[in-house]
Design a protein around this nucleic acid. Structure first.
Lengths: 146, 146
DNA sequence: ATATTTCTCGACTTTTTTAGTCGGGAAGTT
DNA sequence: AACTTCCCGACTAAAAAAGTCGAGAAATAT
């Protein structure tokens, strides 16, 4: 039941981790990798890609690392997933069996359902900010203390 | 943006096709395959699997083929997807990066979101019957005639 | 300067999943 | 007996996802 591929989850977790340490200077890939249980060399690739979004930036050298360039309140899971998806995939028909030309073109009985599902998923993604997730974690930790 | 794998879509379409011809005797794999643009030999496999659900049965020989054993009003897309998923996959944590042991066990900040998404998807799947899809197709065809 | 640290880049490999195929047999029909 | 259709299991192919690697470039420290 993996809703979204691991790579996407790693990306979300990486940004989540950066958000937690926002304002405290750059955070090394190795630290993020350990904190979020992500293979470091793979995370390298993912963070590189995320730089392209503008939400994340990096610095090299001794005190180098990655840091967030935006407020955790202003970035949603939906934003990130859409960025990772890329524009080409988003243009595709959500309903369609074959990529490109649909054998049922336009008259597909299933299309409305797939679209509803897609919308329902992204409604949740879009209303979940990174800040919400941080709050969620705090709540979990507090509950653990009792 | 494939929400569900092709195999699942083929399975849904196969049952959908059988539902359309319910009560008119068995329908051949080859016919279903052509009507729904599914590779025939692959459909063979899928229908074989679907027999295990009890919603579908078959007959061999000259006038053989597949037929539905239940009412299209009483079977939902959710039912079918869950059957195809299998019990093992359903037991897995929807949120979890690694299958089996979660590195964040129980205290994962993302879990509530993934669960919400899963629930939202299945809400739609569960409230869509095969009969609804048939009605949807009729509506599409009627609209085309104008 | 030079050594060290950390990101950077592209190509590459491996693993997993999905999709699809095939041959030959079994049950029905004519 | 000939023909049609499902049936079964193993098998292959293709695609996507996950992960790795080596060498280089910037920043900092000593």
């Amino acid at each position: 039941m993996a809703i979204t591929p691991k790579k996407n989850q790693y990306a979300l977790r990486a940004i989540f981790e950066l958000a937690k340490y926002l304002g405290q200077g750059p955070k090394k890939i190795s630290e993020i990798a350990e904190a979020q249980a992500i293979p470091m060399r793979f995370l390298e690739v993912i963070l590189g890609q995320l730089k392209g979004s503008g939400w994340v930036d990096s610095k090299r050298g001794f005190y180098g690392g990655y840091f967030l360039k935006c407020s955790p309140k202003e970035i949603t899971v939906g934003d990130i997933l859409r960025f990772l998806q890329g524009p080409s995939k988003q243009a595709e028909c959500v309903a369609c069996i074959s990529k490109g030309d649909c054998p049922f073109d336009g008259q597909c009985a299933f299309a409305p359902m797939w679209n509803k599902v897609d919308a329902a998923m992204f409604k949740i993604y879009d209303e979940t900010t990174i800040d919400d997730l941080i709050k969620m974690e705090k709540k979990n930790i507090d509950r653990e203390k009792i």
